[in-house]
């Protein structure tokens, strides 16, 4: 071999036997089957990423919206003049009633004493003082404030 043409001629024969042995139809079938069985990972990754981004945005926006409605430094909400809205306050408290102890429930009720008309509170029969109520009765009273 002493010229470029012969080298090129030899190069053209390289891999010829491997190519001859290749079952092209079977290869095509396998490729199509693999494409069908293994969807494009990049697309899935992009979809998952967008879903995560969307979820994160939703949490941030939702959190900001909730935070903007929360009262500054307390558990009730404020009206236009800064006063606590009884209905909203009762709702926030009532969401977590099950987690409150009897003393905590009494404290919560004490904050409502000045805000809620006693006629609207369903005090159990036979009780005249909230301090006499047990936890179950106190929860019932608070739930009646939810409206």
């Amino acid at each position: 071999m002493n010229d470029e043409a012969r080298l090129e001629s030899l190069a053209k024969r390289l891999g010829a036997s491997a190519a001859e042995r290749l079952d092209v139809e079977a290869t095509a079938r396998k490729v199509v089957a693999r494409l069908r069985e293994q969807p494009v990972r990049r697309t899935i990754w992009v979809q998952q990423t967008w879903l995560r981004i969307a979820a994160a945005v939703l949490i941030v926006v939702g959190g900001a919206a909730v935070a903007s409605r929360l009262p500054r430094g307390s558990g009730g909400s404020f009206g236009p003049g800064g006063e606590i809205s009884p209905a909203h306050g009762a709702h926030f408290v009532a969401d977590d009633l099950s987690d409150l102890s009897t003393d905590q429930l009494r404290d919560v009720l004490a904050t409502f004493d000045e805000l809620v008309n006693s006629d609207s509170v369903a005090v159990p029969e036979g009780s005249t003082d909230l301090r006499e109520l047990d936890a179950r009765q106190l929860r019932a009273v608070l739930r009646s404030l939810e409206g």
């Binding site: 891999g15 010829a16 190519a19 290749l22 139809e25 095509a28």
Partner: peptide, 28 residues
């Protein structure tokens, strides 16, 4: 269409891979 593209280009690709050093048993 994918199958047609494979049928059209598989052998030249096999030659290229084998020429570049791919073991025969792994060409497919």
């Amino acid at each position: 269409a994918a199958a047609e593209l494979v049928a059209r280009h598989a052998r030249p690709l096999a030659r290229f891979l084998a020429g570049a050093g791919a073991p025969d048993a792994d060409v497919d």
